[in-house]
Simulated scan of single mutants.
Amino acid sequence: MAAADNDDGMLETRLVQVRGQVQGIGYREACVRRAWAVGVTGWVRNRMDGSVEVMLQGSPEQLASMCAWLSEGMSAALVDELAVTELQPPFARFDRFERLPTL
């Protein structure tokens, strides 16, 4: 627990909108697996407009790695646009990465 407390100064949160052909191909499941591997927390969900929305929380390096994967890490996905919004503190602290229902 102390290690996590030491990382709070480097903790960043980003909301990412992924547009393109990203639904119906296992993108969210692959995203969850990648997030676990990278060590970020947050969530991923499909949106009714056909995009995928991802909330990421971690170090700047973890978030850069995750955003790179979101853009081109899954060969079946055709990502047209990656819109990244950095959220300013204070923000909720996530304790895991999970898949949420479609919004």
Rank of each mutant, 00 (worst) to 15 (best):
M1T: 14
A2P: 10
A2M: 13
A2H: 15
A3Q: 15
A4Q: 14
D5Y: 13
N6D: 14
D7G: 13
M10W: 14
M10G: 15
M10K: 15
L11K: 13
T13C: 13
R14A: 12
L15F: 03
L15G: 01
Q17E: 14
Q17S: 15
V18E: 07
R19F: 07
R19W: 10
G20Y: 13
V22E: 08
G24M: 03
I25N: 10
G26H: 10
Y27D: 02
E29Y: 12
E29S: 05
E29V: 11
E29M: 11
A30N: 14
R34L: 07
A35Y: 04
A35V: 02
A35F: 01
A37C: 01
V38K: 06
V38E: 09
V38G: 08
G39F: 02
G39E: 04
V40S: 04
V40R: 10
T41F: 05
T41S: 05
G42W: 03
W43G: 03
V44W: 03
V44I: 00
V44Q: 01
V44G: 00
R45H: 03
R45D: 01
R45V: 09
N46W: 00
N46E: 09
N46D: 08
N46C: 02
M48I: 12
D49C: 01
S51W: 04
S51K: 00
V52P: 00
V52W: 03
V54L: 02
M55C: 08
Q57P: 04
Q57K: 08
S59W: 06
Q62P: 05
Q62W: 06
L63N: 01
L63W: 02
A64G: 11
A64P: 03
A64L: 06
S65F: 04
S65T: 15
M66L: 12
C67W: 02
C67L: 07
C67T: 11
A68N: 09
A68F: 08
W69G: 08
L70I: 05
S71H: 08
E72H: 09
E72L: 07
G73Q: 06
M74P: 01
M74F: 13
S75K: 10
S75I: 11
S75A: 11
A76D: 12
A76K: 12
A77C: 06
A77Y: 04
L78K: 12
V79M: 04
D80M: 09
D80R: 09
A83V: 07
V84I: 11
E86T: 13
Q88A: 11
F91S: 06
F91M: 00
F91P: 04
A92I: 12
R93S: 02
R93V: 00
D95T: 14
F97I: 07
F97C: 04
F97W: 05
F97E: 03
R99D: 10
R99F: 04
L100Q: 10
L100D: 09
P101T: 09
P101H: 04
T102E: 06
L103E: 09
L103T: 12
